[in-house]
Amino acid sequence: MEILEKLSECIEYGKSNKEFKHPPHLVGSDGASELTAIALSQGISPDDILKKGLMTGMNRIGEKFSTGKAFIPNLLISAKAMYAAMEHLKPFFESGEAKHKGTMLIGTVAGDLHDIGKNIVKMVMEGDGWKVIDLGVNVKTELFLENLNKTENCIVGLSALLTTTMLNMEETVREIKKFNESIKVFVGGAPLSEEFALKIGADKYFADPHSLTKYIN
């Protein structure tokens, strides 16, 4: 469907709406917001819009990002275009007609205040069709557990940027696994490694969010 291909292009290049004067090759044409509304009015299902339009676009920009061909600003404007499209899909998620792939609880661990990395993971996951509950920064283990109690069937993402605070992940991972061993816990942040992730009992480490979406898909 041509309209979904156009929509994915808008997501990839971050064209939120018609007025937005970026990228140069799409100036003046409909953006993600308009195209989503048109697609819905043509009877295309929210699920197809999400999978064939939005996710395709987010995957393309994610791939460029993880191979060093695009950078964080590109990812951020793509995410903005995706949110503009999502606004039209919200009612379908609320009515249950469209479904998220699952829920992710995400937070930067206790003692650490870095949030950009975590925010980017959040956006990429949302763009991949997940519902994300963002617990913020300096998140104590108890807050994760409290939210796990309230949320069924979810995965957890933990972020840390210092070698000191990444040590606090260990306790959080342990307690989450004690709470329910089957909950998948994924970790990320500059000083971490796969070796560290396994040592503290997490399921896996990812250097960037796109690798995570590729893995869980």
Binding site: H22, P23, F71, P73, I77
Partner: peptide, 13 residues
Amino acid sequence: GMGYYDDVAPEYI
């Protein structure tokens, strides 16, 4: 600092 060393950043950015 945002990563655009060799690559040209989009005009908007």
